[in-house]
Design a protein around this nucleic acid. Structure first.
Length: 1091
RNA sequence: GGGCGUGUAGCUCAGGUGGCUAGAGCGCACCCCUGAUAAGGGUGAGGUCGACAGUUCGACUCUGUCCACGCCCA
């Protein structure tokens, strides 16, 4: 290294003390773990949420609605993600100047809590005592424990969510178990009843015979059990129809007079015996309820001869079945596909089909106006019992490929039954014995005895092909450890395929079903001009379909007589309007839903298309009761009271006393506000006046999804926070859950979706993309993350995620987020530290200050305007990743690497009040202020900490009202930067490469320190000439810049031969020995005050 | 098995309507600074764009099949 010219000379004064070095109270180390709780406390003292609502009163409203998490357990990474995103939204809308109510809520009812509580009570021995109580008292005892449990977790999670620094109304959250919420939910339910959307129907559920109760999936325990496995041959009703299906030619001389007698057969012709359909089952006791045989329409079925008999089985299974039956002769006569078999009839081996049909017909509830009696009118079983039906779920894994179907005793059977119009028939009573509709020899017998009784009977009648004992895994009641059965019970439903009509419906919407309305709204573009021929075709088909359905609805006026309809002309006009792509909107555009990301639209639509009627009843204690009453008629049957008026009467009681009242009060008290005589919907048994003492309260509670699906009403409408809601923001699983069910509730009561926009995020997975689970041990504890990184770092990490898809998580990623957070923090710190001696002035006057377009400050401020625009646009699109990345890049590149590096010299070395130093300070104040605001939605603690440091008087920590979260985003400064800045930055890049090359030159020629270098820049257009050469030198970090119009690239000069300023370390050509004995440049000499 | 998604440098991710040497940050390597210092700055090396087939003059981008992963169903 060459000797410094000053080396060896007597060292001059120590100039460090004469510099304006950075100074700030804003520490480099965030210490979030300690400081965030202090912010939390400060905001609480300030009453930040309330203050902000007050300040924004009368401003445009942004109605965000928080979906209720389940009040169970600690918050996990999913909550961290979800709640952070929600808080970003609310805070950024507030920064946009909007009024943003944010009521956090919890889902408090439901089985998981009840199950946990019952387990705990059982383990502590308290359950035995509770079990001895009378029913209502027993439920109340369990409910009290459940409530305590839910309250505990609401408190716990609420604390954790506040620790995450979310800003919401934690003083008054919504709880689905609170009386106000429950009452409002019942009122919404009344509205749905009014629309004729609520009805009662049978549905098979897991049933514990021991406890006489329905069980949820979570209450089942699978244990091995021996059962009879039997193969049964059901005789075909019409043998020729079967042979026709297999394409067997009829024998010319045969007139199929007597197929049962052994006649002659000719080769290739049809057998002379009656064929059968062979099924397999492990629950012989369900055979009395058999109403159909399901085949897969795509499978190949074989007509096989098994010794003397002829039967139909899946071709693939034929050989195996022959082996099982140990038949001597097994030949395949012909094959056909399942779809050709559908519709064929068979004879039940021991049930009289027509007799059963008549009995079931008589049992059908009659149509009427009361919700309770609205059953599936028009859905009879004209097509007949005991026939072959098609079903896709039929597999070839075991059995025969033909599946015994009893709609009252199996989930798939039930769905098939609904689709095929088979009754949901279950002759089994609550105690597991057969009722009077069963064959006489089974009546009063239990289903377990029936297994052998049925098998013996089939054997005697010759229908049993094979029977053996079979060990398999079978669901048991987790408490009694006894096997459970599937049994159809009466449940409440909300019908998605029932036409209804709301006051605001236009002709197009009138008499559409929930499903149609929902799909219309999700796909509102259906009525927008089609972009492609394919789209146009889809539109046409869809519109035609709607037309047909509406016409059907018009024809079927059984229970809809009061509804009016679009006239065919009116409808045609509307449809014609749509098909001609006119501007006529069939649905108001205001009904449309924005999906973020857009594919949520397809997902929600798919789920709406495939969803069955919504079963809203459960047989549990911990929930909101379905306020129905029953009255025993003289003939032993029951009449049900559930009308809009009766429900509203109970709702009033629940509002006042909570749903506990249902279990504690007598029917007369619950119905105190109800006058049956004034209720046009009351069933006749009630309308004439009735004895309240004879009423029985329903033991059903609501599906928790009904409660949460009503939240737009029970929270947002109830509290006056706005309807429809502007945004729902949840995980993508909620397309089936909360989004869809909120939509159904909204459609039923208001005819529209309760939300204007749906934002969904993906799920947290581990670093390898595998799902998180405790058993895999790949989870991270959120409290630990708070302790290790602090909430702001966690939030910064969330903001950086592309949340549309799965989100990979690993401790490493939080460390990385912490690093990038520190980068932003340090940039803020450096800005603040250079403002310690800046005169405080309000920003407005600073903005109006003089920033010449060629000043580096104008460049920085114009860049900030651009950033601000990008960030606010990204925020508006909920693209937090883009927003925070832009902020990060701005801090890292624009500020740290360029602006702050270039202005260091003037800030440190200029006279404190030099024009250009003060100008830079003014710019830096605007930058610091603006950055705090842009960062506030994402890292609320850090933004506020910096804000207070920036704006506080000395001792700022005592300034209580100082808070960035009461501010709004800054309008653009509109400061103009010279068009030449692009060229300057390009020249800078080229110069930096040249300097790097100079460094690597090796030996004595290597100029390692840029301050030892001067650079000559080419300036072909003369652009650079407009700029101050000192600014250019600072931008390159060199001592001196000269312009060389003739040069092709930047030229680096070694300045080590020139003296170096002992204060600024620059070799700018003005450095000489000064009066104080030091070597100083002109600028530094002036700053120090020497000559 | 079905519906909706995702798969691009070591890591996390960008890449309308197909077309110049596929981008960013982190990390890494080398270097500078020591007056933002448990900081700051510079330069640079990393990719057969999940696999296979097809359409095309040309595909990360379009089509099909397959594989892996996630959510929701069955």
């Amino acid at each position: 290294m060459p000797a410094e010219p000053s080396a060896g000379a007597p060292s001059g004064p120590d100039y460090k003390a004469t510099l304006n070095l950075p100074k700030t109270s804003f520490p480099m180390r965030a210490n979030l773990v300690q400081n965030e709780p202090a912010s939390q406390k400060r905001w609480a003292t300030l009453g930040l949420y309330e203050r902000l609502r007050e300040a924004r009163a009368g401003r445009p409203r942004f109605a965000f609605h928080d979906g209720p998490p389940y009040a169970n357990g600690d918050i996990h990474l999913g909550h961290l993600l979800n709640k952070s995103l929600k808080d970003f939204v609310v805070r950024l809308k507030a920064m946009e100047g909007m009024d943003c109510p944010y009521t956090p809520g919890w889902d408090c009812h439901g089985l998981p809590i009840e199950a946990k509580v019952v387990t705990d009570l059982t383990e502590t021995g308290k359950m035995a005592k509770i079990a001895s109580l009378e029913a209502d008292a027993r439920r109340m005892a369990v409910r009290r424990e459940c409530q305590k449990y839910a309250e505990k977790y609401v408190r716990l999670q609420g604390g954790q969510m506040q620790r995450l620094l979310t800003m919401a109304d934690y003083a008054d959250p919504y709880l689905t178990m609170s009386p106000r919420y429950e009452g409002a939910t019942l009122e919404l339910f009344a509205t749905l009843i009014e629309q004729g959307l609520v009805f009662r129907q049978r549905k098979p559920v897991h049933w514990s015979i021991a406890n006489r109760t329905a069980l949820a999936e979570a209450e089942l325990e699978y244990m091995d059990r021996d059962d009879l496995s039997i193969y049964v041959d059901f005789e075909a009703d019409d043998a020729d129809a079967v042979y026709d299906a297999f394409g067997l030619p009829r024998a010319p001389e045969e007139d199929s007079e007597d197929l049962d007698s052994a006649g002659r057969e000719f080769p290739g012709g049809r057998p002379t015996v009656r064929p059968g359909f062979m099924i397999w089952t492990t629950t012989p006791w369900t055979l009395p309820a058999n109403l159909g045989i399901a085949v897969n329409p795509r499978f190949e079925y074989a007509l096989v001869r098994l010794d003397g008999a002829v039967t139909v089985v899946a071709k693939e299974m034929a050989e195996k079945i022959a082996q099982i039956g140990r038949v001597e002769e097994a030949t395949i006569i012909a094959t056909t596909t399942g779809d050709r078999l559908a519709g064929l009839r068979y004879r039940h081996p021991f049930v009289d089909g027509p007799g059963l049909a008549a009995a079931l017909e008589a049992d059908m509830p009659s149509p009427g106006r009361s919700a309770a009696t609205l059953s599936h009118a028009g859905r009879g079983w004209e097509a007949g019992l005991h026939r072959v039906v098609a079903a896709d779920y039929v597999t070839l894994e075991d059995g025969t490929g033909l599946v015994h179907t009893a709609p009252g005793h199996g989930v798939e059977d039930y769905q098939t039954g609904l689709r095929e119009g088979l009754p949901i028939y279950s002759p089994v009573q609550a105690d597991g014995t057969y009722d009077a509709t069963a064959p006489e020899w089974l009546r009063g017998k239990t289903v377990w005895d029936a297994n052998t009784l049925v098998t013996d009977r089939l054997k005697q009648s010759g229908h049993l092909y094979h029977a053996h004992t079979f060990n398999h895994s079978y669901p048991h009641d987790w408490r009694s450890k006894t096997p459970v059965i599937f049994r159809a019970t009466e449940q409440w439903f909300v019908g998605v395929d029932r036409p209804y009509m709301l006051p605001d419906d236009n002709a197009f919407e009138r008499n559409k079903t929930m499903r149609q309305r929902a799909i219309d709204i999700v796909f509102i573009e259906m009525y927008a001009p089609a972009a492609t021929p394919a789209q146009h075709q889809i539109q046409q088909e869809y519109i035609r379909e709607v037309h047909e359905i509406q016409q059907e609805a018009q024809e079927d006026q059984q229970h809809q007589s009061s509804l009016t309809h679009a006239s065919p002309e009116e409808l045609s006009a509307l449809i014609a309007g749509a098909s001609e792509m006119s501007n006529e909107h069939m649905l108001p555009a205001s009904m449309s839903i924005r999906f973020v990301p857009e594919w949520g639209r397809n997902r929600l639509r798919g789920m709406l298309e495939s969803r069955p009627d919504w079963c809203i009843s459960r047989q549990r204690a911990w929930g909101l009761p379905i306020p129905a009453f029953t009255l025993r008629r003289g003939d032993g049957t029951e009449a049900t009271l559930l009308t809009p008026m009766s429900v509203r009467a109970v709702a009033a009681v629940v509002r006042a006393k909570g749903s506990d009242a249902w279990f504690q009060a007598a029917p007369a008290d619950l119905l105190a506000g109800y006058d049956a005589k004034a209720d046009p919907d009351a069933p006749p048994e009630f309308g004439a006046g009735f004895d309240a003492a004879a009423l029985r309260k329903s033991e059903d509670i609501f599906d928790v999804w009904f409660e949460s699906g009503s939240s737009w009403h029970s929270v947002m409408v109830e509290r006056g926070h706005g309807f429809p809601v502007d945004l729902y923001l949840e995980g993508s699983d909620q397309h089936r859950g909360w989004f869809q069910l909120s939509m159904l509730c909204g459609l039923g009561a208001r005819g529209r979706a309760p939300f204007r926009a749906l934002l969904t995020h993906g799920f947290i997975v581990d670093r390898d993309g595998k799902k998180m689970s405790k058993s895999l041990g790949n989870t991270l504890n959120v409290e630990d993350l708070f302790k290790e990184f602090g909430a702001d770092v966690c939030r910064w990490w969330v903001a950086g995620q592309p949340y549309e898809g799965d989100i990979k998580v690993d401790l490493e990623f939080f460390k990385t987020a912490g690093e990038s957070y520190r980068k932003v923090r340090n940039t803020l710190r450096f800005l603040l530290s250079n403002l310690s001696d800046a005169p405080s002035e309000d920003l407005a006057s600073a903005v109006k200050g003089d920033f010449p377009p060629t000043s580096i400050d104008a460049w920085a401020l114009a860049s900030f305007d651009a950033l601000s625009k990008t960030v606010r646009k990204a925020y508006a699109a909920y693209d937090f990743r883009l927003a925070t990345q832009a902020i990060y890049d701005f801090c890292n590149d624009t500020l740290s690497a360029v602006y702050l590096a270039a202005t260091k010299d003037r800030l440190y070395c200029d006279r404190a009040d030099s024009v250009r130093r003060r100008r830079t300070q003014r710019a830096m104040r605007i930058l610091a202020d603006g950055l705090c605001r842009l960062l506030a939605p994402v890292i609320p603690h850090t933004a506020d900490e910096a804000w207070r440091s920036l704006h506080g008087e000395p001792g700022a920590n005592e300034t209580p009202g100082l808070c960035v979260h009461l501010q709004e985003f800054l309008p653009p400064t509109d400061i103009r930067a010279d068009e030449g800045w692009g060229a300057v930055m390009k020249a800078r890049d080229a110069a930096l490469v040249a300097l790097e090359a100079a460094k690597k030159a090796g030996g004595d020629a290597a100029v390692e320190n840029p301050l030892d270098a001067g650079v000559a820049l080419p300036d072909p257009g003369g652009t650079l000439g407009r700029f101050d050469a000192r600014d250019l030198a600072d931008l390159l970090g060199v001592s001196r810049v000269a312009l060389d119009p003739a040069a092709h690239g930047p030229g680096v000069t070694d300045l080590r031969g020139e003296p170096r300023c002992e204060r600024s370390w620059k070799r700018d050509g003005t450095v000489r020995r000064r009066s104080d004995g030091g070597m100083l440049s002109d600028r530094d000499a002036e700053a120090v005050g020497v000559s």
